[in-house]
């Protein structure tokens, strides 16, 4: 076995895992608060990429401005979807939320389709250079993805653990009625949670876009994998989303290299079936409510 190729796969796995983990984190936070699977989260990922594409292509913004702009716009779309759709379904059966989420997914996709068409778009890599680490080549964009994702995870962790606002999100996830009874406002927590989930999805998309292609359906496979990740990691679990993201990222990168590139996307789902048959509760089941 060639060692440098092996290290290369580790770096690829970390890159993919970072993107997946960021998307899954937003999904798991929203699930923790609302107990609904937000299928439209993949559309937020796509919306983030297009927003940055628009900022760079049409407004001539630089990459960092586009990244922040995309995070802000996508957070706003996520909050709007909460205000206009999910908050109104709070007292209806969970099935209604799910159908609404699928409707939103199709709606946002159709809007992107109408504005930008179905063609694949390419975002020029802002940092085309490479780094060499121990004889292995690491493109700077990939280093950025890994570093950015780790930075955001640490920031999110500190936010949830150390701030009062973060504690209200965790409290709402652990016991919604208990949280309401101490005076935490569900509406406020939902808005903050949706904003964070939208921003994380957008950042993941904008970091990933320069090494991938942009299209209206780009979020679909990512969101399916993000669901695999949060089911693996335990629905609503933050460490589970991170670990699950890495597991899927590594499985894909190693699977593509050592087994077959064609099987890359099947591996995530095969792993889901395998792990869930051994551990039906996921890797980090949420504390009992």
């Amino acid at each position: 076995m060639n060692l440098s190729l092996f290290v290369q796969q580790i770096l690829n796995g970390l890159t993919l895992g970072s993107v997946y983990a960021l998307v899954a984190l937003g999904l798991t936070l929203v699930y923790g608060i609302l107990h609904i699977p937000n299928f439209s989260h993949g559309a937020l990922f796509m919306a983030g990429a297009y927003t940055a594409f628009f900022f760079i292509g049409s407004l001539g913004a630089n990459y960092w401005v586009a990244l922040i702009g995309a995070a802000a716009v996508t957070a706003a779309i996520a909050v709007l979807s909460e205000r206009l759709v999910f908050s109104r379904l709070r007292d209806s059966p969970p099935l209604h939320d799910m159908i609404a989420a699928i409707g939103l997914l199709l709606f946002i996709e159709a809007v992107a389709h109408a504005i930008w068409g179905a063609d694949f778009r390419r975002m020029a890599p802002p940092f085309p250079g490479i780094m060499r680490i121990a004889g292995t080549v690491l493109p700077i964009q990939r280093a950025l993805i890994i570093g950015g994702a780790i930075g955001l995870m640490i920031a999110l962790h500190l936010f949830l653990k150390r701030t009062t606002t973060g504690a209200t999100i965790v409290a709402m996830a652990q016991n919604r009625e208990g949280a309401s009874l101490v005076g935490i406002d569900l509406t406020r927590v939902s808005i903050i949670t949706f904003a964070i989930s939208g921003a994380l999805a957008a950042v993941a998309a904008v970091l990933f876009a320069p090494i991938n292609l942009i299209s209206p359906s780009m979020g679909n496979l990512v969101i399916l994998k993000a669901f695999v990740i949060i089911i693996l990691g335990g629905m609503g679990s933050v460490p589970g989303a991170i670990l699950g993201g890495m597991i899927i990222g590594f499985a894909e990168s190693f699977g593509a290299f050592y087994i077959s590139t064609d099987l890359k996307d099947i591996i995530a789902f095969a792993l889901l079936v395998a792990i869930l048959s051994l551990r039906p509760q996921g890797l980090f089941p949420a504390p009992s409510r």
């Binding site: 949280a179 009874l181 101490v182």
Partner: peptide, 17 residues
């Protein structure tokens, strides 16, 4: 209706939210 995954101290402090 406590927050089972949080410390006793944090549960109490959230009571003062």
């Amino acid at each position: 209706k406590l927050f089972p995954g949080m410390s006793v101290h944090k549960n109490l402090m959230l009571g003062a939210y």
